[in-house]
Structure formats: C-alpha cells, structure tokens
Simulated scan of single mutants.
Amino acid sequence: MSIGSLGDVVFEASSEKVKTLRDMQRQGSARFATHEIIGKKPLREFLGPGLEKITFQIQLSASLGIEPASEMKTLRELRDKGEALEFVLGGSAVGEELWTIEDLSEDWSRINGQGTIIFANVSVTLQEYPRDTAGTAGGSGTDTTSGSEEGDGT
C-alpha cells in the first residue's frame, strides 16, 4: 500500500516491502524588510511568506524488501540534479508547491560480510520550490504555468 511519494520515490508498506518515513517536521517563516529611521525605531514591512522546509527520516532495511544502496543512490541523484518534485502523503500533495532535496545525511548502520549495506537511516531535508519557477532550475524542464515544455517555442 502506497503511503506517499517524492517524485518517483514511493513510500510504501506491504507484505513484501516497507519503506516509510518518520519524524517529519515542517518549518516555515515570514519575510520582512527592516527600514531604518533616524531617531526612531526601525519599521518592518511584510514582504510575503518565506520558503518552507520539511525534514524526515527514512529507514532502509534489506530485511524489509529494500535495497538501501540503490535507494540512497536514487535520492542522491535527485538531490544532485536539483529536480523539483511533487511530495504526496496519504493521497494529497504536501503544500501547493514543489520540493527539492536540499540535504541528505546517510547513516550506514549495518553492513554485511560482503560489504553490502543491509540497514541504513537517511535524513532528508526538502526545500519548497515555487511552481511558477519550475523549469528554471536544474532539472524539472516543465514550465507548469504555461503547460508547455521548455524550449518548444510556445
């Protein structure tokens, strides 16, 4: 059963595979400009919302039908390409925007006698990526505001 996904990375729990996330935290802030005024306290001007961040942990275990090395490689590739991804949990998008993998931290907890990683914990940090800029970063290639592919002349 699918719990959710980050792009093509599927979080699931079934009799054959268990790949779930835990300890999810979401953080956001507001943006303000400060205007200095001689002889008075500075004034703050609201500029708009800041970009949100999400952090979570993924446990990858060979005993639960997962190949930790392969899964970590996929996550590293998505991070290194800067791909803007849809993040879905429970069938609903998390937020209105896309997300990029900003940071990964891998803890290779168990390695067998052949050097194969059999258990790992991965810390993932996502950064919000506004849809109106999709296609201008290192990877998505789709301008979701016009519905056309980048570079097709429309």
Rank of each mutant, 00 (worst) to 15 (best):
S2Y: 03
G4R: 13
L6H: 06
G7V: 05
F11L: 11
E12C: 08
E12S: 08
A13D: 13
A13C: 12
V18G: 06
L21A: 06
Q25G: 09
R26G: 11
G28F: 07
G28D: 06
S29I: 01
F32E: 04
F32M: 08
A33S: 15
P42S: 09
L43N: 01
R44V: 11
P49N: 05
G50M: 09
E52D: 15
L60Y: 07
S63I: 09
I66Y: 05
E67K: 09
P68M: 08
A69F: 11
A69V: 13
S70Y: 00
S70I: 02
M72K: 04
R76P: 01
R76V: 04
E77F: 03
L78Q: 07
D80V: 05
G82A: 07
E83W: 01
E86G: 14
E86D: 15
V88D: 13
L89Q: 15
G91M: 07
S92N: 13
E97I: 00
G115C: 02
T116H: 08
T116G: 04
N121E: 09
V122S: 08
V124K: 07
Q127L: 15
Y129D: 03
D132I: 11
A134I: 14
A134T: 14
G138Q: 07
S140D: 01
G141T: 13
S146A: 06
S146F: 04
G147P: 05
G147I: 01
E150V: 14
G153K: 01
